[in-house]
Design a protein around this nucleic acid. Structure first.
Length: 166
DNA sequence: TCAGTTATTCATG
DNA sequence: CATGAATAACTGA
């Protein structure tokens, strides 16, 4: 699908965003070791006009979300890489208001498959766009953290920013 | 197709 | 609190 990558500077580090012709397709957390602001080429040189706009929206949304506030506008998300079930899960995740949390079981119920909680967890893990698709707002039944693609530290940080404790 | 894996959950002891 | 079964969907071969 020919992704084009660009770097996004945030207060928490430098993310990498991958765009297709349809929209934002991937979002990667900053690498653990080296976050070097100076050496990041790819300021969006290979992006077309639409993608540049999406990049700006993504950067703004990221910073707003990292601050724990609801985002006003989001770039189009290209989720065509996922299966239809995964796309349903990701849509359900986006419907969770900022500051609230759901359990894996509740997500499964809202999809009409109450016994698919395990599969929901797997779909969350396969989510290519963390943070923007708020997979961090999904907790286990007993309030357990579960897991997170970029590491549990991120999940805790994001939840803490929204006022939720662990 | 099928065995192996998963960011779950619930019932037991 | 530790353990194990049940369950739905993905991945790779």
């Amino acid at each position: 699908m020919n992704l084009t990558f660009a770097s996004i500077e945030t207060m928490a580090g430098i993310f990498r965003a991958g765009f297709t012709a349809a929209g934002l397709a991937r979002l990667e957390f900053p690498p653990p070791g080296a976050t070097r602001p100076g050496t990041t080429e790819q300021g969006g040189a290979d992006l077309n006009a639409s993608q540049r706009r999406w990049l700006r929206q993504t950067r703004q949304a990221l910073n707003v979300l990292l601050a724990g506030r609801p985002v006003k506008e989001l770039p189009p998300l290209d989720v065509t890489a996922g299966t239809s079930f995964q796309q349903s899960v990701w849509r359900a995740l986006q419907s969770i208001p900022a500051g609230e949390t759901r359990t894996y079981g509740e997500i499964a119920c809202s999809l009409g498959r109450p016994r698919a909680m395990r599969a929901v967890g797997q779909a969350c893990g396969a989510n290519p766009i963390p943070v923007l698709v708020p997979c961090h707002r999904v907790l286990g039944a007993g309030g357990a953290l579960g897991g997170f693609s970029g590491g549990l530290e991120w999940k805790r940080r994001l939840l803490a920013g929204e006022g939720r404790a662990v």
